[in-house]
Design a protein around this nucleic acid. Sequence first.
DNA 1: ACTGTTATGGACCGGACGGTCAATAACGAG
DNA 2: CTCGTTATTGACCGTCCGGTCCATAACAGT
Lengths: 194, 194
Amino acid sequence: MARPRKFVERDVVSSAGEVFAVRGLAATTLDDLVQATGLGKQSLYNAFGGKRELFLRALSEDREEAARAVSEALEHGDASPVERIRGHMLRLAIEFSRSDSRVSLTTRALVESTGESDQLSAVTKSGIEQLAGIYGHCLELARAAGDLPADANVQSLATYFVAITRGMELLGRAGVGRAALTAVALDSLRVLRN
Amino acid sequence: MARPRKFVERDVVSSAGEVFAVRGLAATTLDDLVQATGLGKQSLYNAFGGKRELFLRALSEDREEAARAVSEALEHGDASPVERIRGHMLRLAIEFSRSDSRVSLTTRALVESTGESDQLSAVTKSGIEQLAGIYGHCLELARAAGDLPADANVQSLATYFVAITRGMELLGRAGVGRAALTAVALDSLRVLRN
DNA sequence: ACTGTTATGGACCGGACGGTCAATAACGAG
DNA sequence: CTCGTTATTGACCGTCCGGTCCATAACAGT
């Protein structure tokens, strides 16, 4: 009944997210997005509403994807919970030491948000809570298995892992290499010793 | 022999740094800086050369100030090295949970730098190495005092502390409160148990 | 007081930015 | 085939941006 779109929203959001991850929200221009997505300005505007809205879409997708990935790494497999966390951290060390200058959109949003009541802040906060929840779940299993120190607080350990992973991401961006990041990841796991 | 300046460079750089810390490099406009510093555009330009150069000045100052502060916290006092680190981390937890939306210029530069060969990257990398060096020095003392696990690697632990502090900074920005950040700080110290 | 030199402030500029408009194209329904 | 609806395209717009120009002010030295 009407002219069909020539693009798939998911692909567009994904391409846009790539640009945002490399350049950041403020530094990305509409023309960058036009070039990266292949759409015209007006099509972009019709479908998403503008640069900021498109970023929010990309952010949501990135958040979901990240949560999915961590979930998969921590909640499945036959290794023990602590070993799963260990494997996850080592994989992150490798991922963050890739020199492709990407920064997760969540971190971008965190840094570029302009205030408490910013919409970016809201999405980012809930994203962090979601991540902490996933870590927390796995840590709970570890505790049940007796693999955590007796006095460990699962909640705060979960937040701790969110913090150390964000820190590793920044260090990777700063050029810290794979070996060093791996060492950091291994160090970070020492908090789990009992 | 010529008209004297009406401003003190240090103050101007400091005010500018404040703005950059809140808004970021890309999102700060020259007019923001004019308003924050009280100088005219031309004076700003004469004295510093432009927005980017001014940011670099502010970044250097911020880096020195941060290094000085950490140095002071870790290298003096009658407490043991490990206890000094502990106190330092607890103080950071409080600092990062202030809700004033600041992000250290080093983190800003890290996230907003546009490539490997970026001047921002260079300054930031050396800043991180400097910080790691300070942590490393204190950890060396701790090791000498026998307060570190026997198999601990001082180098990587130093990097680890840089990572966890950057992560805590981001979490603070995300709205994680003082109590939670303090718990994270305490957790992070568990890697030092022997 | 005069002069050389630098600082200052406000007007100004070219360009890029995010966003919009209007003409046209591509479809499905009838 | 025609019509209604929506997508697309490229030209266009007002604004804001970083940066510059220029006329003037404020000093130090003579």
